[in-house]
């Protein structure tokens, strides 16, 4: 198996459009939200299209709601397809969660009960998505603050089950993993160990905040040392193609994003170097 050198980039946000455009050389790739592309003006869509001519684009969204116990929203899939085509996107990703029911859309990623019934719904919907788009599809682990009492599977078992049965790849959000492991008391390294082998194609990293009661997924801080450590560990175990730094606040400190991207590049470079050394020094049997 060949070893990928992951492309590193950040999530495109309109508020830091100029900062991103001024620092394109710091990124190998950019992540665009389908929802932003859709909601933007013609002018903003043109900007996205121009950027896509300079850097590869990966596509992400928040409103597909693959976990809703209903048919997948085909209109939304059409929009995703149009965006993939407009931006020549390499991959599309969504969250393993639900955001809406008939008549109400919360825009909030809500956890699914980790049951066979919920897995069945998600698997069916993800298969439907995969059948209707022309790029690889990844499912992301979300951060969550409450657990459904009737859950049968652990978090990682549930993610693995849905991805295994639906054929989706995994988008591992390392900050979500860090937050959940603290809020719900488990070992994040064991979680990484248990992930389906070679299925993590895509990684998210971000920085959140710590309150007296909970770790919160705010996407507005510099990456923590724990996130860097978990990223290093993941890169030893998996072979992802894309690493995206998500930032949704404190945009005045956008230089932190650039710095963190450089640090991620450095981690990749060192990891790659170590892997090469291992190969060279490995005794021949």
């Amino acid at each position: 198996m060949s070893i990928n050198i992951p492309s590193v980039g950040c999530g495109f946000r309109g508020k830091v459009k100029q900062a991103i455009l001024n620092n394109l050389e710091s990124f190998d790739i950019l992540e665009v939200m389908v929802d932003h592309y859709l909601a933007g003006s013609d002018n903003s869509r043109e900007i996205f299209q121009k950027i896509s001519q300079q850097l590869p684009i990966v596509l992400h969204s928040v409103a597909l709601s693959v976990g809703t116990a209903a048919q997948i929203d085909t209109e939304y899939i059409n929009i995703v397809n149009r965006t993939i085509k407009d931006l020549n996107a390499l991959v599309y990703s969504e969250h393993l969660s639900f955001t809406k029911v008939d008549g109400i859309d919360t825009r909030l990623l809500l956890p699914l009960p980790r049951t066979s019934a919920a897995a069945e719904v998600a698997i069916k919907n993800v298969k439907s998505v995969k059948e209707n788009i022309e790029v690889p599809f990844c499912l992301e682990n979300i951060s969550y603050y409450f657990t459904h009492p009737e859950s049968q599977y652990s978090e990682v078992e549930f993610l693995n089950l849905v991805c295994q049965e639906s054929g989706a790849d995994i988008l591992l959000d390392i900050e979500n993993l860090r937050i959940n492991s603290i809020n719900h008391h488990y070992d994040p390294y064991k979680y990484i160990d248990q992930l389906l082998p070679n299925r993590v194609q895509y990684i998210h990293v971000a920085g959140g905040i710590t309150t007296a009661e909970l770790e919160l997924d705010t996407h507005d801080q510099k990456l923590s040392q724990t996130v860097f450590d978990l990223l290093k560990y993941t890169l030893k175990k998996q072979n992802p193609k894309y690493i995206i730094l998500e930032r949704d606040g404190r945009f005045n400190d956008f230089l932190e994003v650039i710095d963190d991207c450089h640090l991620i590049h450095e981690i990749i470079r060192r990891g790659h170097h170590e892997q090469k050394l291992e190969r060279i020094t490995k005794p021949i049997n």
Partner: peptide
């Protein structure tokens, strides 16, 4: 689709909206 799951999701979101 699971009727129970649908009811649970409906109740959860309606609770939050309320």
């Amino acid at each position: 689709m699971s009727k129970n799951l649908k009811e649970l999701q409906n109740q959860l979101i309606k609770y939050m909206v309320a």
